[in-house]
Structures are given as structure tokens and as C-alpha cells.
Amino acid sequence: MRIYLDNAATTPLDPAVFEAMKPFMLEDFGNPSSTHAHGRKVRAAIESARKKIAELLNCTPGEIIFTSGGTEADNSILASGLQTYGVQTIISSPIEHHAVEHTLQILAAQRKITLRMVTLDDKGHVDMSHLEALLQENPRALVSLMHANNEVGNLLDIDRVGQLCDQYGAYFHSDTVQTVGHYRHNLGALKVHGIAAAAHKFHGPKGVGFMFIRKDKKIQPFMHGGAQERNMRGGTENVYGIVGLAKALEIAYRDMDDHKKHIEQLKISMIGQLKEQIPGVTFHGDSDNLNRSLYTVLNVSLPESEENDMMLFNLDLQGISASGGSACSSGATTGSHVLGALYPDSKRGAIRFSFGKYNTQEDVDVAVKKLAELVKVPA
């Protein structure tokens, strides 16, 4: 039996989510843009889902725009935000997800916009003093900083960044793909103008997500060709995906406290066992600090060894599914840009274990045992 410890890449679909989706796969098949009864029934389901998500996040239904996932949401907010507000300077960090990093590089090159990178400390956290200095030098900039890093798990003080952006008139976008469904977001109070989410990160279906666009900071459409999503995103909606997304988020909020407690115990256990069984093991970023990192992610730093290049492959052979970085670029031949930015000269190995609500203590015990057997520590 295989053990799945790559939940930051994607999570298994909750059976209750699948049950909520089924009628819209088989029976309620109308096009939500149609005015007849078949279409109206499906339209009502979409709007009910939008209302539920808005209630959970404390925003208005009109501020939720459904997308194909986090990458589309990030691209839409960044590209359209720059165009709408005539931004001349972008402030970001070198460890953003490629959906942000690559998009900003392209936009900066195409539009001759200045791209400034905020300094990170030795653990990979944003230097708030440097961020404020950049905002002072570049008023009315666009700031894009992720709420939690998908590889090392570092959490951003998103409230503090929002306050700084508000103080200096900056447009604030945050990739919240790793935190929506795992942390509670009060968008009515948080000073952020746009966030991104993907259902498959919290036991919903793949291929659907949403962006939150604050009503007083609206942007121009990114995708054209129809009046769907309040004229903000052309194309027929992914109806059963949207229904599944709302159900998954509802379950996540209902059970969040219990799941957080359960998963934190698994992470604590893995940290302790790894320290006991693998001499010289450390942790990348701040992933072993439960107060400053995702409770769902642990990025393990293994002692330098020729065996490290094959570690993920060998773990896979042992029935353990984990990753070495961002799953969205798992086919790339280059290493992690996040670890490269934080540890440019390091030759240590990296394994990202990420936990979900279906993981057990036995999963952790077996994974640590297998990893300890595979690690070759120099004499």
C-alpha cells in the first residue's frame, strides 16, 4: 500500500465533495448562460456556491470570480491589475510560485516595468523594513507576495504587508493557494486587493479555483469572449467543479480546528523522529517552526550525499509519494528556484513532505523509517 505525503501538490477528493458534484455531471447538465429551466437550475447552483464561499471568507459574492485554478487567478490579477491602474513598479520576492514569478518577469519585460525584489532573511521571511523602504521609493506600486511558500512553508505576515500597502497606496496581491481551506481568511478586514485559490489544495476537484477582487479595486477582464462571471471571465463555467469547490471549502471550515490539530501532531512527530534517526538532518526555511510555517508542510534538508539526487525516486520505489519542490514544475531539469534563492551554495538534499487530513501516524512512522534507511551519511 502506498503512502501519500504530497498534499501541497494536490489532495485526494473528499467523497462528500464528489457526491455534491455528481448531480451536475449526470442530471443537471444545462448551460448556466441559458435562460430556460435547465440553465436556470445550474445558474442557481453556481450563485449558491459563490454565496457560500463569500460567507466563509467574509466578503461579498460579487468579489468572488471563478477561474480554472490558482495559476489563472494569479495571472489575471497581475496582468489586469497592472493595466487597470497604470502601475510602473512591481515589488515581489525571489521565492514566489512560478505562476507569479514567471508572470511578473514577462510583464516587466513586455511593458518595461521595473521589477524590484524584497530582501529575505536567512530563513526566507520577507524583510519588512526593506519592503517599507521599497514602498516609500515606489508609491502606488503593485506588491505580490504569497501568503505561504509552497515549498518551504514559510508564512507571510499578510496583515502587516496589507497595512504597509494601504499606507503607501500600493495594490496588494497575494497567492493564497496554500492557505485557503487551511486557515481562516477575513477578507472584510484584511487589506488585500486580490487573492488566488485552487480547490484541489483542500480536497476539492482539480481544474477550478477562484480569485477575490476587492469591489473598490476592480480590474479589467483577463479572459474575453463572453459575459460570464459578471463580465470578468469569458467562457462557460466549470459547473460541477464550482459546486465541488464550495462544498470542499465548507467542509474545510467546518472541520478546520480538528484537522489542524491532527496534522500538526503528525508534523511534530516527523520532526522529532527525523532528528532521532538521521544524524545531521535540518529543515529548509522555517518549516520546522510551527508558528511561522504551514502546518501542512515540512521541507527536510538532508546531509550532502551522492545518493540525494535519487532520493525521491528511491522513496517512490519504497511506496512513499513526496516531492523535492514545487509539483507544478516537477518535470523540469533544474532545481528548485526557492531553495536556490535561499541556499545558493548548498549541496544538501531536499524532500518536501506535506500532510493532509487522511494521513495517519503510521504513514509518518513508515516514511521516516524508509527515509532513514535510504540516507547515506558520510563517515
Rank of each mutant, 00 (worst) to 15 (best):
M232P: 04
I213N: 09
E276N: 14
A37Q: 14
E237M: 09
Y358L: 14
L371E: 02
Y85G: 07
Y240R: 14
K22D: 00
V192I: 10
P139F: 06
F355N: 04
T35F: 14
P279K: 03
K357D: 07
D255M: 12
P23L: 01
A108Y: 05
N314V: 13
L5I: 01
A54R: 05
Q273N: 14
T360N: 05
K51L: 08
A133F: 04
I3R: 04
S33G: 10
M128V: 11
P12H: 04
K267I: 00
L302Y: 08
K51T: 11
L245T: 11
S346Y: 01
R292W: 14
G234E: 06
A99R: 02
L339E: 08
S129C: 09
I3V: 09
I77C: 08
E307G: 11
T103L: 04
V338I: 07
V243F: 06
T119Y: 09
P279W: 06
A227S: 15
S336T: 03
K51D: 08
V118H: 08
M211L: 03
L82K: 03
D6S: 13
A16N: 09
R184M: 07
M256V: 12
T103K: 04
S93E: 08
L190E: 02
H193Q: 01
S129D: 14
T89G: 06
I91K: 03
P94R: 07
G70W: 02
L26P: 13
G209K: 12
L131S: 00
S68Y: 08
A170V: 06
M117N: 02
A54C: 03
K201P: 07
R292Q: 13
S329H: 15
L190M: 03
H36W: 07
Q273T: 13
A8C: 06
Y168T: 09
H98G: 12
L13N: 03
S321T: 15
A16S: 11
K201L: 11
G285L: 02
G280I: 03
Y343I: 02
T360C: 05
K217Y: 13
F202W: 05
V152C: 04
L249G: 03
T296N: 11
I271S: 05
R233Y: 00
G69F: 05
V239E: 06
N58T: 05
E362P: 12
I64S: 04
L274S: 02
V192R: 00
H284L: 13
S33D: 12
L266D: 02
T114Q: 08
I158P: 07
A379P: 14
T236C: 12
E229M: 07
I113D: 04
T84R: 12
A20W: 10
G169C: 15
K247G: 09
L155C: 11
Q220W: 13
S326M: 12
G244A: 04
H262Q: 13
L82G: 01
R352G: 10
K201E: 08
L155M: 12
E96H: 04
D6C: 13
T360D: 06
D127G: 13
G241S: 07
I158G: 05
V364P: 02
K376D: 10
G30L: 00
D14A: 00
